[in-house]
Structures are given as structure tokens and as C-alpha cells.
Design a protein around this nucleic acid. Sequence first.
DNA 1: GTCTATATACGGATAGAC
DNA 2: GTCTATCCGTATATAGAC
Lengths: 214, 214
Amino acid sequence: MKAKETIEKNQSTEELIKNAARRVFTKKGYAATRTRDIAEESGFNLALINYYFRSKEKLFDIIMLEHIQTFVYSIMGIVNDRNTTLQEKLQILISHYIDMLIENPNLPMFVLNEVNADPQKLVDKLGIDKSIQEMPYMLIQWKEMAAKTKMPAFNPVHMLMNIVSLTIFPFIGSPMIRNRTGIDVAAFNILMEERKKLIPIWIKAIMMSGHAEE
Amino acid sequence: MKAKETIEKNQSTEELIKNAARRVFTKKGYAATRTRDIAEESGFNLALINYYFRSKEKLFDIIMLEHIQTFVYSIMGIVNDRNTTLQEKLQILISHYIDMLIENPNLPMFVLNEVNADPQKLVDKLGIDKSIQEMPYMLIQWKEMAAKTKMPAFNPVHMLMNIVSLTIFPFIGSPMIRNRTGIDVAAFNILMEERKKLIPIWIKAIMMSGHAEE
DNA sequence: GTCTATATACGGATAGAC
DNA sequence: GTCTATCCGTATATAGAC
């Protein structure tokens, strides 16, 4: 897709260290990462990390915040788009996430891990809160649709869980899935590409299944 | 059978330390756990941990192995049962997992994390391999069913991912879900109880959706 | 800005008293 | 078996040379 090795070219030392930190933190998590790992990965000396970022934790918080933004804010535009239907949003959203996850397969594990470690930090330290409070347009469309089709309207939380589960979990389980099934990363990614088309169909099927149940 | 009266009652020091270690490791993971945390949680001194278990890592491996067994081997009987239909297996399996996960909500994150950290360890050190190699009876039933109904037979890997995703992911995402939706653990668990009935219905709907797609 | 050398703290493990 | 005291490697962070 992208010619991505023009990148490491004219970057400042600060950028290079941050990029190294991103790679190491994202892969190993906060506790298992040593500042020495980051130094080595960046090609610079250990002392530079503190020179630019004061401490391991401050550097981590920067990476963490960026990841949360990638994870959460990147979809705000999609779910609030007035010009797409619900089904279109679903397709775009899932496709967007799967692309992003193929690029950054360790991201979900990282984010969930650190949220797990300290759920309050999200709110306190990183200021994730205000802009996600109002109801996204997507949910409004959903409720309209449920009312119109006299669908038994599952708890929206269930549906949200279903979409997120089907999209993200395979990446979280990837090492185990590959370990057990023997498929490699390339084959795994092909499966994920397939899911871009399949998940929206499945979600629709799940929504319709309420009828049978009633 | 015996009730659970002997909980923290007549257990040996070794047991008590192991139980404390299980709680701490499962919650925080290997790297973020200090042997001092385990000592404190157990009520005993730090030195006792090494007296009984030689090292942090050896203790960890014991906990890890137990968890893997809970996670994997506990379902062997279910998926290989000759006397239940595919749909029954699905219901039993999902219900079994959700019960287990309500009891041990941190377990999936823990297992996936450590597998992620070192996928090879599963095979090398813990000897997880032989008994999971032959095709489970459940998969045979599945293929028969797919052939009989002329269903377009998704890649079984997709269906496995779907079942596992819908069942396990909500627990992995629980802290974030609760943080964003504001529901508490009790309300969350009620949702999970609902999913015992819903997921098998949804899976069936997903399998049927192949027809529409063709 | 970037390095080497070092101070300081922390965590795993052990010695030895009881 | 269980404790206190301590050792020692490792990791973060800083001082100071260049």
C-alpha cells in the first residue's frame, strides 16, 4: 500500500525514539519493556530517552494516548456521518478496522491490557471522556431501523459487543489460532480480508435472528 | 459431593501461596507481578515462596499450566461426546464457558497474553500438543451437517473464530465496556447470562446466512 | 545533543536464626 | 516451616565529559 521506508529518513532523534518505543511497548507491554530495549531498538543511547521524555512512564503515556486515539477517535467520523446508511457504516467501519489491525496486529491486546491494568487512568490521565459522550448518529439510525422493522431490538450493548468481538478478537487470538491451526500470518490475513465482507452479512443475520426467536 | 466448606480452612501453606499466586498472576500478568505481591496476598513471608516453589518462574508455570488446562482440556469431553447433537454441543459449550468466565473473568486475558509473549512455550515447556491433535467429533458432525444441508460451508476456522469471539471477547473487553457504558459487574454478568441462549441462535443464523450470500 | 559512567532503587533469591 | 536480614543482579534515572 504505502512506501513506508521513506519514513525513517529525515526524522528527529525524538521521533526515532518515540517510534522505537511504540514498537517495543506495543509488543511487550509496559512492565515487560526495559528502557534499554527501547534504546537498542532506536539505535541511540539509553540516556537519550530520559533526555527527551523524562521517564519511561511519561514516554509510555504518550504512546498509550496515541493508540487510544487510533482506536477510538478514528471512527468518530464514520459513525457520525449523516450521508451513509447503517449497513454502509457497518461495512466501512469493519473494513477500516480490519485494515488497521492487519497493519497493527498487537494494538488491541496492548490497549485492552493497559486499560485492564488501570481503567481509571483512561479517564484521569489521558482525558478520554468528553468527546465520546453524546450518542453517535449510528446508534440513532439503529434505533430507527429497529422501530421500523419491528425487530425485537436486542440490547444495543449486545450488538456492539458482537460487532467488536467478530472484528477484533481474531487478532487478539491470532498467536493461539495460528499455533493451533498451523496457518501463517499471510494466510491469517487473507482470512481477515474475507471477514471484511462476511462480518456485515453475519451481523445482519444476527439482527434478523431475533424474529425467529420471538 | 462435598460443599465448599474447606475453602481457606485447612489448606496447607503451599496451597495458600499457590492460590495467592493464582490471583495475583491472573490479574497482573507475569512481568507486572512481584513475588512480594504474592507474599502479601498469601499472608506469608516472601522467603516461603522460594522455599516451596524455588522461583517465581516455576510458580508461574504451574499456574499457567492449570489455566491452560481449564481453558482447553475442560471442553474435550464436550466436543467429543458421541451422544449430543451439534446444536446441543454448541449450547453446552458456550454455557460452560460463560459460567467459567463469570467465575474467572481475567482468565482469557491472562492466557492470551502469555501465549502472545511466548507462543513456543506452550508447546515446549507445557507440553500442550499431543492430545489436541486428532479432529474432535464436533468438527466431524459439522462437516456432515454442512454436506447434508448443502450449506456453502464457510471455512471452519471462521466459524470457530466466531464462536470463540462472541463468547470470550466480552470478558476481555469488560473493563473497557463497563468504563464506556457505565454498567457494573452485576449488570455485565446478566448480559453474559443472556448470551448463553443468544449466541447459539446467532451462530445458527450466521451459518444459515451463507445461503443468502450465494 | 549524544555519549560513558555512575548513583539509586527495586526485585528475586538465599542465609541463617528460631 | 516460617521468619528477618541481606545479598546481588538488573533497571531506571542522572551527572558530567565531549
